[in-house]
Design a protein around this nucleic acid. Structure first.
Lengths: 186, 186
DNA sequence: CGAAGATTTCAGAAATTACTGAAATCCGCT
DNA sequence: AGCGGATTTCAGTAATTTCTGAAATCTTCG
């Protein structure tokens, strides 16, 4: 597939962006290409278009499939695999968030719990240090709990919330946020 | 400064976490150390504690100062610089989000605008491709606008919103989210 | 079953990124 | 001004990550 200059610019930028967020550049470029492409592409077309090795495409697609951002789509009369990207931007965003939470935030919570336990019983960790570990744990648990509730809301409601922007603030009960803990635990 | 096992575990994990999100490992470790430390540390103490070169500490601290996550604090009777990390978790989170938005999302928006312009006028980019670029641009602009409004709310209000969790949904006007605009594509 | 094509794996090469140590610079003090 | 310690810079090296090409494996169809 020939890239128009606009597409090329997009693909290169997306690759760069991925790299900054800890995603392999080729993976991000392939994602960008499939996102833009007007129809599903074969691995070989991808390799040719982006001038990267076929094997690299194979590995990268596996990665994208693992994130649920790309899927195989059979094409009648062609036994090669064709790939196409998820198109719905909300869906893309929530997949990425969900996956990163699972891969990174959740394990971090476990480790923080372990650190808090260890610090509580070792008699040598400074009081301030223990407080910080505990505080961070509580903070992340609160955020995490909030996210779990919000992600369950139907998409139109989320969109509605977004549209309300800062006006949503009028519905916060007075005096909220006064007690310690920012709420939401257990 | 001697690290207790709990601290060491925390610092190593944080370094790992940073690496996954595109932050240099040493930078993340230093941040973790300063976050836990019960008092400000000198660059040399940091280098000794983490067993990394003094020069590396210098560069990494510069980076952290640039993110606004660490600050120099003068210590009476010592002419060496001492460093301490921001302690407030909300503040830390918002600084990081703000900075990444500035460094990554805003430039992405510019590039998307440029791509959209270019694609509109080049006569060779597929219709579907143009729609996707335009749709993503609109989507990110919506998110970005929402963020700008929400970040201006006072912290206690934000905390209050978090506490409400999914219950906030009751305040979304019926029928919101129906028009085009805020969401992905159809 | 076996040939042709498609796909995946993986060891090593290439490229990138991170780290170090030596030298240069800065700074406060006398 | 000039000394001593603190800090920064940066060229080169080390470590890590990414990418490739050849070989192995899988799949489909005659």
């Amino acid at each position: 597939m020939r890239l128009t200059p606009a597409m090329e610019r997009y693909v290169l930028h997306w690759g760069e962006m991925g790299a900054r967020w800890g995603v392999n550049r080729s993976v991000a470029q392939i994602h960008a290409l499939l996102y833009l492409a007007p129809h599903p592409l074969t691995a070989e077309e991808i390799a040719d278009t982006l001038a990267i090795a076929r094997s690299n495409v194979s590995m990268s697609l596996k990665e994208l499939l693992g994130w649920g951002l790309v899927r195989r789509t059979p094409v009648k009369g062609d036994r090669r695999d064709h790939f196409e990207a998820l198109r719905d931007n909300w869906e893309i965003l929530t997949r990425i968030v969900e996956e990163r939470k699972k891969r990174e935030i959740d394990p971090t919570l476990s480790i923080l719990r372990a650190c808090a336990m260890e610090a509580a019983s070792d008699g040598q960790t400074a009081r301030e240090t223990k407080e910080r570990i505990g505080g961070l744990l509580e903070f992340l648990e609160t955020l995490s709990g909030w996210y779990d509730q919000v992600k369950g809301l139907p998409k139109p409601v989320l969109v509605g919330l977004m549209k309300m922007g800062g006006r949503i603030a009028r519905f916060v009960p007075r005096g909220a946020g006064k007690r310690r803990g920012a709420g939401g635990e257990r």
